[in-house]
């Protein structure tokens, strides 16, 4: 503020009042800021694949702080993302979280030199016990919805190596069925093994995992469906991570519940991957009740 502003006459009391009322109204009927994450109920379509849909403007924003994971080796010595803006919406069957953070580079390919930008949200699986915020613990597992920018890159190899001449790959040339399977076993073992890093339903960029402690991340075998999508715009990532709420009678995410969510962000160009990540603590999450 310049001295000119500071020397300006103080606004009258009623101006403050109007300001306060306006702020309260913006939280009350959408948008604005909140002191915890509130998943607002939407009546129309839940933007499960659109992180910049207008509907997000109606969800209050909570700014979470992140810290580098420096408890378990390998650690992230220095964090690169310290703040993430969190919004949430639900429609009674699905809950969607939209993360927005600043990142100077759009890292959507992985090589030995570079990793992909990525993010994840994590939920406790029970209503009573709050698991460790660091991927849960034995007996208190967590559900994780994970997004990797590289998984939305359609031609990863073409982007990385534009001058690579066409190369004959026996696996691709083999006839469909048994011969190709055999070739894949030999030359594309991760594909053959159905590793979710390479084989995802409909090529989704979001995968559901569960974990009960560090190093225990494993696919959920479809016990809840997930969807999501990321968009990088002018130095910001906007990513929506959506999951099914599940059986409303027992799910901690059922409308009217207060539960928790934790966030992790990976900045690929900063060498962040796996346990080298920026993470939040548990954030209070309120699933707004009411409606049908």
């Amino acid at each position: 503020m310049t001295s000119k502003h500071r020397s300006a006459p103080r606004p009258r009391g009623w101006v403050w009042l109007v300001g306060l009322l306006a702020a309260a109204a913006s939280v009350g009927c959408g948008g604005g800021r909140a002191d915890h994450v509130i998943a607002r109920r939407v009546e129309g379509e839940l933007p499960r694949m659109d992180p910049v849909a207008a509907a997000w403007d109606d969800a209050p924003e909570f700014e979470a702080t992140l810290q580098p994971q420096n408890v378990v080796a390998p650690q992230l010595a220095e964090g690169s993302v310290s703040r993430v803006r969190v919004r949430a919406l639900h429609d009674g069957t699905w809950v969607a979280v939209r993360l927005e953070w600043d990142d100077a580079t759009d890292d959507h390919n992985v090589t030995t030199s570079t990793f992909s930008d990525a993010c994840a949200v994590q939920f406790p699986t029970g209503r009573e016990v709050r698991p460790s915020p660091m991927m849960g613990n034995d007996g208190a597992p967590v559900d994780i919805v994970y997004f990797r920018a590289a998984w939305q890159t359609t031609d990863n190899m073409g982007e990385l190596y534009p001058n690579m001449p066409p190369i004959y790959h026996p696996a691709e040339a083999a006839a469909e069925g048994e011969p190709r399977e055999q070739m894949a076993l030999q030359y594309q073992p991760a594909t053959h093994a159905g590793n979710p890093t390479v084989v995802r339903p409909d090529g989704a960029s979001v995968v559901a995992f569960s974990a009960a402690g560090f190093g225990s991340l494993s696919p959920t075998e479809g016990h809840f469906a997930v969807q999501g999508h990321g968009e990088y715009r002018e130095g910001h990532w906007y990513v929506v991570l959506a999951r099914e709420i599940g059986d409303a009678s027992s799910a901690p995410l059922a409308p009217g519940q207060r539960t928790a969510v934790a966030v992790a962000i990976w900045n690929g160009s900063h060498g962040e991957v796996g346990s080298r990540k920026n993470r939040s603590d548990w954030l209070d999450l309120e699933i707004e009740g009411g409606g049908s």
């Binding site: 030995t112 590289a150 991760a190 590793n195 390479v198």
Partner: peptide
């Protein structure tokens, strides 16, 4: 070695 096509190490 890292396989940039599969995203998995081999």
């Amino acid at each position: 070695f890292f396989n940039p096509h599969s995203g998995v190490s081999e």
